[in-house]
């Protein structure tokens, strides 16, 4: 069977929207998928992406380190900005060994939101290091999922060793408006970086 060529509007006049994206990074269980769910207009989808890692062991030939492909889940959602522009949010685990996928995700991204659990701030270091290295504008957002902040933000900033120019905000990954504001912080930071360049 043929799909019925649709009558209106004609495909020839339809143009897909231009996609833009923001990367949502952070350690496991830090609230990335929760944040995407809170604001995405579609239920978050998950797909598998391959990452290539160099295995610590030596393969059967005894010479060359084996390259291994590992699969990692990639969660994402989207927000229609206007009829010609669509924002994608890609949530990616923030471990060192997922660096390969970060390249794909960071390429052309408007910026990144690095989510931090104040009890386990070390988990976000690889993401912070990576975005600093590739010079992708990012904001660090402490997820107040547990209600209270045990440290002052200034202490956290010191512990994270992030530059004073990098915004550090608190938010609640379960709240749509709170996630919206965190994303706005990313975009405003990106804007100021461009304007300051």
């Amino acid at each position: 069977m043929d799909l019925k060529p649709s009558t209106e509007p004609s495909r020839r006049t339809r143009r897909p929207p231009v996609p833009v994206k923001i990367v949502i990074a952070g350690g496991f269980g830090v609230g990335k998928t929760t944040a995407v769910s809170a604001i995405s207009e579609i239920p978050p989808l998950s797909t598998e992406a391959a990452i290539t890692t160099v295995a610590a062991r030596v393969d059967a030939t005894g010479e060359v380190p084996a390259k291994m492909t590992t699969t990692v889940a990639l969660d994402f959602g989207c927000i229609t900005i206007d009829e010609a522009l669509k924002l994608y949010l890609f949530g990616t685990p923030g471990q060192d060994r997922f660096g390969f996928m970060w390249h794909d995700l960071s390429q052309g991204a408007l910026g990144a939101l690095v989510i931090v659990d104040a009890r386990r701030i070390n988990d976000c270091y690889p993401a912070v290091d990576y975005f600093e290295k590739v010079r992708l504008p990012f904001v660090v957002a402490v997820n107040m999922f547990h209600g209270e902040l045990r440290h002052e933000l200034a202490e956290l900033r010191w512990a994270l060793a992030i530059d004073a120019g990098i915004p550090l905000v608190t938010f609640d990954a379960r709240s749509k408006l709170s996630v919206r504001d965190a994303l706005l912080a990313v975009l405003r930071h990106t804007r100021s970086r461009i304007e300051g360049a």
Binding site: P19, L85, L87, G108, L110
Partner: peptide, 20 residues
């Protein structure tokens, strides 16, 4: 495909900000 360099395009970023 996305337009490049998208992260240097102020108008585009303003549009996303307004949308959010």
């Amino acid at each position: 495909r996305p337009t490049f360099p998208v992260n240097q395009d102020l108008n585009l970023i303003e549009r996303v900000i307004r949308g959010l």
